[in-house]
Nucleic acid binder design. Structure first.
Lengths: 122, 122
DNA sequence: TATAGAGATAGATACCTGTCAATATCGACG
DNA sequence: CGTCGATATTGACAGGTATCTATCTCTATA
């Protein structure tokens, strides 16, 4: 089935707006929906954060797991995690003193579908 | 097969550095290589430009094909195309008076592979 | 209740970026 | 050779962003 799809995606859910770029010209509205997702990932620190969370045991990691991987202050990492969370890429769950982050599969799938069918043209 | 891969990618080719994010923690070096690609796409105008080029007849489009789709000045579109080109996402070919842009399949494949295996976790 | 540790927020600063108007370049064609 | 039309480049400006230090909030626990 794929994701209902077509050009007009659900304006409520930015993740639904991921018809492959190669399939048809993306509308301005859809582009405005999807761009923030990509913008959130388009940073070396956030790329690594996302990768760390995704590849961490159980698919989740707390901030304390992530901090040691960087030469950055704790507030800076917290800021980047917030950007990823606000974009809908990471889920956030507080358990006791620790906060655990987990990637949202729907967001990952959305990004994936964006670039589908464009790598093997004619 | 896939792309040789591992954590250490070919530093000469940023497009080679696309082990899926979920597979292992991305190195700082790889993140610095890949982030510019994503940054280039992380803009609504450039997303649409890329989509227009990809979905255009023959997989290529000249600037004159692209301009009418936007309410932006010609220099602004030219700027965005340059960003996409400099990032390695678009190839540029001048034919007569017109300049044709075409998506680089390797770049598209690189982005695709980045998000592979992250959408369907456990 | 006081203390300590995990994480978020606020404010400041330096840098990057998207946009435009003006101008330059480059190729076709009288 | 001069002009025209298609793109690119330049310079300027407004808005965004990554980072830090300092501080706040919240939870567990002595």
């Amino acid at each position: 089935m794929s994701m209902s799809a077509g050009a007009g995606c659900d304006p409520d859910d930015p993740l639904a707006c991921c018809t492959p770029l190669a399939r048809e010209p993306m509308s301005a509205a859809d582009a405005e929906q999807v761009a923030p997702l990509l913008k959130a990932v388009a940073d070396p620190v956030r790329l690594r954060l996302l990768s760390l969370v995704l590849s961490h045991e159980g698919g989740e990691a707390c901030v304390c797991d992530l901090l040691p991987a960087f030469d950055l202050s704790q507030p800076t990492i917290s800021h980047h995690l917030k950007v990823l969370h606000d974009a809908g890429l990471l889920d956030r769950e507080k358990r006791g003193v620790w906060v655990y982050y987990r990637a949202r599969p729907a967001a990952m799938a959305a990004m994936l579908s964006l670039f589908a069918d464009a790598g093997v043209p004619a």
